[in-house]
Design a binder for these strands. Sequence first.
DNA 1: CGGGATTGTGAGAGAACGTA
DNA 2: TACGTTCTCTCACAATCCCG
Length: 227
Amino acid sequence: METIALAEVAAVLADPSRATMCLALLDGRAWTVGELAKAAGIALSTASEHVTRLVDAGFVARVKQGRASYVRIADPRVAELIEHLAQHAEHRPPSGLTSSLRVRRLGFARTCYDHLAGVLGVAVRDGMLATGLVATADGLTLTGRGREVLAELGVPVAAGRRPLLRDCLDWTERRDHLAGAVPAALLDRAVEAGWVGRDGHRAVKVLPAAAKPFAALGVDLDALSGS
DNA sequence: CGGGATTGTGAGAGAACGTA
DNA sequence: TACGTTCTCTCACAATCCCG
């Protein structure tokens, strides 16, 4: 029975158009069906069918807003699943200069669904641990000092159903970066404040304004980009 | 009324299966 | 093994729906 279920789940992602859509959605944003159609290079009606299939399989959720219909990853675990599958696919060496540059950019800083990943993501985890903003004694927890620093940076720490912090294995660094509500809020704040910029895909560009706030998190951006 | 999204339908391609 | 048939899936066009 399990093999049938596995085959069904795999079949949903086995189509190139649906896989392209899922990868696009990994940037954490909500996309319209039209945008997804353009990204996958297929007709709108075909994209709508694919979205229906992804919704039925529980991969994505459709959110109606007025006459527009937005599509987003249904839950962070789905994003992780797709991320891990992408990790497996990207183990193959990139061909061509453009793709190798893209892989290098993704390796330095990118989004993993709704939080930072890559060298930068791992450095944030290391920095927050080294400066005592995060503790590991009782699982991953935010310390009092951590809450203070995040408040100073304007990063909201809201308790909800989602854990504040948890580890997420980074596919380029083979080490953990931070996932959860706090890293998601941190990425939102970083984009909003102009610390980082997004290139429309998953790669994240570190901007000059990032030096100070990231230093407060224990990350030396100069040392990071120089290494 | 215009624009974006969905649904129904049929064509085409490829996989799976049965048979000689 | 080769061939023919059947089935499934993807795709796009056209009609329709829905909302601002």
